[in-house]
Design a protein around this nucleic acid. Sequence first.
RNA 1: GGGCUCAUAGCUCAACGGAUAGAGCACAGGGUUGCGGACCCUGGUGUGAGGGUUCGAUUCCCUCUGAGCCCUCCA
Length: 540
Amino acid sequence: MRIKNELKKGIDEVLRKLHLEIPDYSLEFAPEEIDGDFATNVALIAGSRTEKLSIEIAEGISRALQEVEPDTIERIEVAKPGFINIYIVRKRWHRELAMILKEGKNYGKTNIGKGMKILIEFVSANPTGPLHVGHGRGASIGDSLANILRETGYQVVKEYYVNDIGNQIDLLEKSINIRQKELRGEEVSLPEGAYRGSYVKEIAEELESKYGKKKSFDCREYAVQKILSLVRKDLEDFGVKFDRWFFESTLYRKNKVKEIIDSLKNKDLIYEKDGAQWFKSSQFGDEKDRVVIRENKKPTYFTSDITYHYDKFRRGSKKVINIWGADHHGYVDRIRASLAALGISPEDLKIILYQLVSLRRGGQQVSMSTREGEFVTLRQVMEEVGKDASRFFFLMRGADSRLDFDLELAKKQSPENPVYYVQYAHARICSIFREKRKKEYKKVSLTERTEEEEKESIEIIKRLSRYPEVVKNCAQRYEPHHLTGYLQDLAKCFHHYYDKYRVLSGDKSATQSRLKLVEAIQLVISNGLGLLGISAPQRM
RNA sequence: GGGCUCAUAGCUCAACGGAUAGAGCACAGGGUUGCGGACCCUGGUGUGAGGGUUCGAUUCCCUCUGAGCCCUCCA
């Protein structure tokens, strides 16, 4: 990272000297087939903008760069179309390793966010039943992303939006009431769409035993609080803690919804049709106008949502991130439209849509609807495959690819699950240090560092030095899954190294440098897993 | 019918417009007088189809095919 910044500066200086202006060139770690350290396409871009050949420009830049950075650059080669491959002096990599160790837990932190306020809202499942697997995906992505954004210098608030009013709550109440009647021995039948889960019966039983036929309690309030406490517990056990639980009902209590409607009316963006009030969202890129006040005078869910999103920005967030299941995608345009109408730049709202998780149990598709009785909860998955494995699993793939979660398979694969592979690397390193403390470890003789080992060590240091950039990349692209891939790769390098070279050996200086290397690996794995909300165990 | 998303190895998935497209699983073989064998090594197949943009495309644009989802005065 530091080396890269240094090189970047060097290249910029060279470009100035050569009177070239190339703002958007790339400087990358060289691909593995090339044995250089860094590669840049700056000459290729320059070539496409002038008459000169890229190769010639590359030669020129190389010569100048070598003069500017003699202490860092070992040599430079120009390759085929015009790539410049840069080789770094070895000493510089060793210094990098020392700096990684010095930074310790802070290694990976950057300040690209500069304290910018970000509000990230996720899960936000209706309080009408327990969380299911799909929510687990949203929870994993949201929570890790929040960690990553904090690590890169943003000021992040994690929020859960609770839809504690509306038709689905009415339906919940009805479902409970029906179960209560059933408990009193009445003949009942569940209407279409009623909640059928066993928790409905449980709540009905609790209400019956506590209050009986007394009408003094508020069934809705009780049920929502009850279910919410279960949701909270599930999330807590999943390692997810929200900074704020925002209740939809408060928008009405504080009259905020009315304010928004009035504000839109003042802008002449509301009209009446078929007895309802419509918002002219099509003026702001939505495919058609939307109802905000129904014929029965009640606001729609959308109306609450406009108010809620406006409120998020009004509270000072410069950027708002929503994590939604992909089935809500039709909703994106209208929310953006409403923000635009209220004078907020729609680009400041980032909506991450994750494709739904389809569940299988032994080849059989399992229904995911909360309204059907039978569905697999997040808790069940956690109990079957563990918190760490589930989170890693959810974070391994990009949000926009579908996720097939076969419970049988997840269970069966659990020992080979990649998370164990990464955690095992960490535990192994811890074990080395435990062994070292014993002082009586078996000293093995044939173990001086060879040229080959030196080369492989530097390859590992290069990977370690990429870590802050990986985190940064995840933050800028809002994609935590790059980190899981990075950690798997790093763990692989470690296991390979461990297998080949004995760390604790008879050779003191060899032992010293190997210990430094594995300590740095341990540090990066631990920091990285931390951002994913996954534990880095000392023992397994 | 319209819209959103996706299509990469036998399977599940990676790859800021970059060089010879990578991992894991599965399959087959092999490996430790040693700090944890939950490990390591060796095997091979490829971007759904067709155009375009350019030094260069899995990535961007268009057409087609196929899959999932959404098209409520539900949330």
